[in-house]
Simulated scan of single mutants.
Amino acid sequence: MRSNEIETLIDLMAKLPGLGPRSARRAVLHLIRKRALLLTPLSDAMQAVAISARECLNCGNVGTSEICEICSDDKRATGEICVVEDVSDLWAMERAGVFKGRYHVLGGTLSALDGVGPEDLSIPRLVDRVTAEGISEVILALNATVDGQTTAHYIADQLEGRVRLTSLAQGVPIGGELDYLDEGTISAALTARKQI
């Protein structure tokens, strides 16, 4: 028999993305077996993050201060803002290490089916930032979904004539084989073709 505390931990772990009940049980058992090495430091780190984590007042990134390290870095004031749907997208862009400007996290995408309208996202804050920060280019790095493209078109309408608008290239991924790609990806790649 497991104690209520262990069962509660398993239930909570099972709610994390990518973990089901079986994976959560294995993870908890591993943590208990490595209590001094993993469980106690993990518990301390989670407590510290629970106390200190906050959303950046400027861009929506998650950090430990009112204004995140990216927004407070003067070297990143390049006049470019990369617009992403969620913080995980921002972190993915940062892992690539190629974008040296600042970001803006929307907090999702427009979705009529889910009842998400422009007022539910940080689009008005983006429009304010473009004016206040003297932004010259807005890069729309939104997912290539119907909702992502709808959101991109809405933002483009809001910023039309104020700033240069660009989007990430779409098409054949590096290492991709045409035989394994869907028709939409092939169509986007053909439309966005460039001269060699």
Rank of each mutant, 00 (worst) to 15 (best):
R35L: 04
I67Y: 11
S3Y: 10
I139N: 09
M13A: 14
Y154R: 12
T40F: 11
S88L: 08
L110D: 01
Q47L: 11
K100I: 06
T145P: 03
E177N: 14
R129D: 14
S3D: 15
Y154N: 03
P21Y: 07
E177C: 15
V163D: 06
T64N: 11
A141M: 06
G184C: 07
I123Q: 04
G115F: 02
N58F: 08
I174P: 14
G97R: 04
P118E: 00
A156C: 09
H153N: 15
S88D: 11
K100G: 13
L190N: 15
K15L: 07
G101S: 03
L165F: 02
R129C: 09
A48Y: 09
P21I: 13
D44V: 10
V83I: 02
T150E: 04
T191R: 11
L181K: 03
L159A: 02
L12R: 10
S122T: 12
V84Q: 03
A188I: 03
A144F: 12
A189S: 08
V84F: 00
S3C: 14
G97F: 00
D114A: 13
V130R: 08
A92R: 05
V172H: 10
V127E: 03
D120R: 14
V130T: 07
A27I: 14
R162I: 11
E177D: 11
Q149Y: 04
E94T: 01
P118M: 02
A132M: 09
A188D: 10
R125W: 11
A132V: 05
E55H: 04
I81N: 03
I6E: 09
V84D: 03
R76L: 01
R76V: 00
S23D: 12
V62T: 06
G134I: 05
G175E: 01
R22K: 12
D157Q: 11
D86K: 10
A156P: 06
A96Q: 09
E160L: 10
C68Q: 09
W91V: 15
V87D: 05
A24F: 01
G134C: 07
T40V: 12
G134L: 02
T166V: 01
A188W: 10
Y103H: 01
A48V: 09
K34Q: 13
T150I: 05
P118V: 02
H153M: 14
I67H: 12
V105D: 00
A50I: 06
L168E: 09
I32G: 03
G63V: 00
K75T: 08
D182I: 01
A169C: 07
V172L: 05
E137K: 08
D179L: 12
R26K: 07
D182H: 10
P124R: 10
N61E: 15
G79A: 02
G175F: 05
